[in-house]
Design a protein around this nucleic acid. Sequence first.
DNA 1: GCTTGACTTCGAGTGCGCTCGAACTGCCAG
DNA 2: CTGGCAGTTCGAGCGCACTCGAAGTCAAGC
Lengths: 130, 130
Amino acid sequence: MDTQLTERTLTVGEAAERVGLTTYTLRWYEQEGLVAPVGRDTAGRRRYTERDVDWLVLLTRLRRTGMPVRDMRRYAELARQGDRTNAARLALLKAHRDRVLARMAELEEDLTVLNYKIGFYDGASAGCEA
Amino acid sequence: MDTQLTERTLTVGEAAERVGLTTYTLRWYEQEGLVAPVGRDTAGRRRYTERDVDWLVLLTRLRRTGMPVRDMRRYAELARQGDRTNAARLALLKAHRDRVLARMAELEEDLTVLNYKIGFYDGASAGCEA
DNA sequence: GCTTGACTTCGAGTGCGCTCGAACTGCCAG
DNA sequence: CTGGCAGTTCGAGCGCACTCGAAGTCAAGC
């Protein structure tokens, strides 16, 4: 019933705070096509819906996991083309997951080396060189 | 006995291949103070010792785990000052380890979101939007 | 009615980590 | 003796992801 009565929207500043990005970045993401053009109020100011915010949150996750902006754009383009791109989007996400897993494995390995190194300094105060 | 008879050294190209960096990067690392000045042959060409290579390998680990070049330089400067900086180096490495662990936790969390998202596309071909 | 402040667009600037081109030198194979 | 290749230095350039300044607009509060 109340389909759009409860549609509370956020300004760019509020949205920025919610998702942990700056207003600069939010506008830039839109300009770069990572976000579909955001609705405007009568004064031409951006109004972010909850769905816009959800999308931005997803973007921050992808970004944090190291997805390049170029790939996020590609994903966004696919999303804008509707359900028929589901397979492509799935493939993109899976490929990204693989990279994230590889990255995590690498980190784990590097952490081992780091711990080993710390052990040298910590255990014996006469540490190794290098 | 044979302390330096077996001292096989590597050219910048060989060293680059060994550590997985380019010759450009190796020279740049030296210039930036991430590596102490490397020994030269009579023609002025760099000769990397095994210790130099070990150091470079460590640097690649630190780098891969996200340590900024600025911090690697600091670490290198400390290393050049000898054993009296062991405590400082230990602190630096421990602080870095904390950041790596935090990063890994974050990645793990983001991976969960990613898996959830993939589940949507994969499980139901009528996926969610966004 | 006027100030304040958050918004708008645009293009330029920043920081990081390399990456490269140009001009030169010197060893080694043919 | 002569290519050719790998090295040298220097400074400039690049790709990425923002980040910011300037100049202007608009709505709301005093």
